[in-house]
Design a protein around this nucleic acid. Structure first.
Length: 572
DNA sequence: GCCGTTTTCGGCCCGACTGTTTTCAGTCG
């Protein structure tokens, strides 16, 4: 059984949770968490590194001990140290700390005093009124725990970025009506443009914090008020999303924005740099002793530790600080760099808009070209095109291109990769296309090796150009199919194929880490929308966000080029 | 458990809010 990075990270995280419940040395706990983070962010596989004899202890936060443990997990699928801890402290206890108000200390007590091991035990004990009897528990808390456990079944815990945007924008509009309000900005993972958002962190500048908070908790969408002070408050909206609002004075705006944008790892790293210079950095500013020396803008905060400004999408503690020092921060691709979309559908298959409508919408966005990629015949539910219907569409495109000014339609197709790795249409029609977008749409259940080989075999076809949504995941709905993307990328590189960042908010596939790995392998990426209507073209910005999180520059992205240049690149 | 130009021991980010509390621990971000 192959062991993946995510498996190793999960073991370390669980071990950290359990050690914390056992009240182990908190710094040891942190070391496991930090190692798990490093591993999650690692663009290459640990098993591959081990096979190549690379030293794992060169990775940040991984010393000789953890390197040995990683090797043990990768080689045996198992960690003895974990078994030993689990013998004392059942692994199921780790899940309990995800319940609000239950940290390691209380979970420890629940285990010791009531013998609780699982969420089910916890629900039972809470329902039986046993929690409130314990020291440092109360009836109110018991009720809160019960409510939370009930709520869990009903609402999902993370929201797609696009969904979070809907809630956030409405709430910000509400906040901006407060008298005396200054800035209103959504910070946190939302500002870092993470693909899903757990909660919203809203930063506000104002002199009168209490007034802002009163107005905030009075928002009609507020379902529960979890805390309410004069500078901060936490609520849960009716849609289930948690929102934190923080009010700071204007002179602290930059420091607070930096602080609340995170990520935590990035902040810690910056704060440490400050400490080295005898500075204290918190959400109110940068201080030397009692004296505030910076904090009005984020640029000031960075400048105080001799760093250039770092874009929010890069603030994940994945090497951006070192890059900033070295002057090698990427000049991130921007929405304005995109010259055309390469993956869209029309009514010919399962889209809602006509060729002409799509073309005009693309032109209105300032694009100079639009690649038409209706489904191929295997996608029967999507009215996929057979060779004959595709030929007819290509003729339509020719005719329309003669009429259209300022936009060129490009001939393409989203070709199904069949289960055996063949493409769904014959060469006789594929050769008429300028490029193809190839995708797996069924048989997600193949095992990892078979799925990987299926895709690589498809790439052997000279008409294969871009691999669409490489993992097939749908955020909040289904995980991707099992596939060895490292091998797929290496195969793409060899054959001159490309990968996609599909900007559809449910896909965002490739993800940030994989996109960066592709960049490092010198594989160019197409940022597309998979639009099924003219409105769908707007999703390009989510794709750009994901690309920026993957450190991509304009040159790394195929469709930042004018069509003639791009056409030459796509030819195999 | 990691780390190091102050390096093999002794550090390891910091503040707000809540209520377990009445002077502070626990939790969260």
């Amino acid at each position: 059984m192959a062991v993946h990075n995510a498996d190793v990270a999960a073991i370390f995280n669980r071990l950290a949770d359990l050690l914390e419940i056992e009240e182990a040395n908190p710094f040891r706990v942190r070391a496991y968490r930090r190692a798990a983070q490093t591993i999650e962010d690692l663009p290459e596989s640990l098993s591959g590194m081990i096979a190549r004899g690379e030293k794992l202890s060169t990775l940040p936060g991984i010393g000789d001990d953890l390197a040995g443990k990683i090797r043990e997990i990768v080689e045996s699928g198992h960690l003895k140290a974990m078994d030993e801890v689990e013998a004392r402290t059942p692994s199921t206890l780790a899940a309990l700390t995800s319940v609000p108000d239950l940290g390691p200390k209380r979970v420890h007590m629940l285990h010791e005093e009531l013998g609780i091991e699982t969420l089910e035990d916890l629900t039972e004990a809470a329902a039986a009124g046993k929690l409130k009897e314990l020291p440092r528990f109360s009836a109110a808390m018991e009720k809160k725990v019960l409510d939370e456990l009930r709520r869990r079944g009903e609402t999902e815990q993370r929201f797609r970025l696009s969904t979070a945007e809907d809630f956030a924008e409405a709430l910000c509009t509400h906040l901006r009506t407060v008298r005396g309000i200054g800035e209103v900005v959504v910070a946190g993972s939302y500002r870092r443009r993470k693909e899903t958002v757990g909660d919203l962190d809203i930063l506000v500048t104002a002199k009168d914090g209490a007034r802002v908070i009163d107005h905030f908790v009075g928002y009609e969408e507020v379902d529960q008020v979890l805390s309410k002070g004069t500078t901060r408050s936490t609520v849960i909206l009716k849609c289930g999303i948690q929102v934190d609002v923080r009010v700071v004075p204007e002179e602290s705006y930059g420091a607070a924005l930096h602080y609340f944008t995170g990520s935590k790892g990035h902040n810690i790293a910056v704060r440490k740099l400050g400490m080295d210079k005898g500075l204290k950095i918190n959400e109110y500013g940068v201080f030397r002793g009692e004296k505030r020396i910076a904090g009005r803008t984020e640029e000031e905060v960075y400048r105080s530790v001799k760093l250039p400004y770092i874009e929010p999408e890069l603030r994940e503690d994945r090497g951006e600080i070192d890059a900033a020092f070295a002057g090698t921060l990427p000049k991130l691709v921007a929405l304005a760099d995109i010259r055309g979309d390469l993956h869209v559908h029309t009514r010919a298959s399962d889209g809602k808009s006509t060729l002409r409508e799509m073309a005009e919408a693309a032109r209105a966005r300032g694009y100079s070209y639009l690649g038409i990629t209706d489904h191929s015949k295997h996608a029967t539910v999507a009215h996929g095109l057979d060779a004959k219907r595709l030929a007819a569409e290509l003729d339509d495109i020719d005719r329309l291109n003669d009429e259209l000014e300022g936009i060129t339609l490009i001939k393409s197709c989203e070709v199904d990769i069949l289960a055996d790795g063949k493409l769904d249409l014959p060469a006789s029609i594929l050769k008429r296309l300028d490029y193809t977008v190839c995708a797996v749409h069924y048989r997600f259940d193949l095992d990892r090796d078979k799925q990987t080989e299926r895709i690589i075999r498809a790439m052997d076809n000279r008409y294969f150009t871009i691999l669409a949504h490489p993992t097939g995941r749908l955020l909040g709905e289904r995980p991707g199919y099992a596939v060895d993307l490292e091998r797929v990328m290496a195969a793409a590189k060899e054959r001159g194929c490309f990968l996609e960042i599909n900007g559809h908010p449910a896909r965002l596939d490739l993800d940030d880490v994989r996109a960066r790995a592709a960049k490092e392998m010198d594989i160019r990426i197409a940022i597309t929308t998979d639009a099924h209507s003219t409105a769908g073209l707007g999703a390009i910005r989510y794709g750009v966000d994901q690309a920026r999180r993957g450190w991509l520059e304009a040159d790394d992205v195929l469709n930042t080029r004018p069509w003639p240049k791009l056409k030459a690149m796509l030819a195999r």
